[in-house]
Amino acid sequence: MSDKQLDLDGLVAELSSGMTLGIGGWGSRRKPMAAVRAILRSDLTDLTIVSYGGPDVGLLCAAGKVAKVVYGFVTLDSIPTDPHFKRARQTGAIEAMEVDEGMFYLGLLAASQRVPFLPTRAGLGSDVMRVNPGLKTVTSPYEDGEELVAMPALNLDAAIVHVNRADTSGSGQILGPDPFFDELFLGAARKRFITTEAIIPTEEFLDHGPIQTMCISRLLTDGVVATPGGAHFTACVPDYQRDEAFQKEYVTAAADDDSWAAFAARYLAIDEASYQQSAGPFRSETAQPPREGGGQ
């Protein structure tokens, strides 16, 4: 089996400006934040971000990396909206494609299955059809003749998802209660990357969780990056919960340019190792063991 390990710089080197990039996770949960931070430090720009949006979208918007966002929502879960995404939309800084979150799922599924669209009732009658004039309907060729939305495939140039454990050949294990749509992000993408809390020997997967948690096969991955604490400040249960205090700090800092510049200098202008030391879930001054439980 080939060794697919790379580091964050190696991952970023595989990306290029103008790409359509899918980001796994959901809201402020299990986001590949270390990879997002690496993109923030890079020259990449003009990205189309496809995401069940959380602070990944906000941070990339704040750094001017984004041309367009494809989303059903952008939320921080415990805080309803992301301040940077709000500002980007309200100032017209980005283009947007807003669809029902189920349509979004079908778009990824269609891309994974290499079909041009999948039919759904979701979207009919709503302004999703008005604000996305490119969306079309399709009429059932069978007796019912129902006219449904033809959700187009969301084909991705690259996708990045974050998992709890992985092996060197790129099989991934998700130990939290919800795998979200990570498998489909990978399936929809041409270049596929997973970041992980820890790379472990393949034979140890079952020591961490049952077979059902081993849900990302190496058929779906081209590269794997070890990024302990790499979902911070989003939740990555059972390894760690969302860092609510840090998330509040992130939102508060977004209030004006000066405080944001200070936040960015302190947490975003530094490399990942320094970030983990000063802010990460395993930072020494708090040195808390991973908490159990799936609630958020």
Partner: peptide, 21 residues
């Protein structure tokens, strides 16, 4: 105006699909 809203809220979420299902 959706194209450039005075206030961006969370997004349509699952509302379009929920209401017709």
């Amino acid at each position: 105006d959706w194209a450039r809203p005075s206030a961006q809220l969370v997004g349509v979420r699952g509302a379009p699909g929920n209401t017709v299902n």
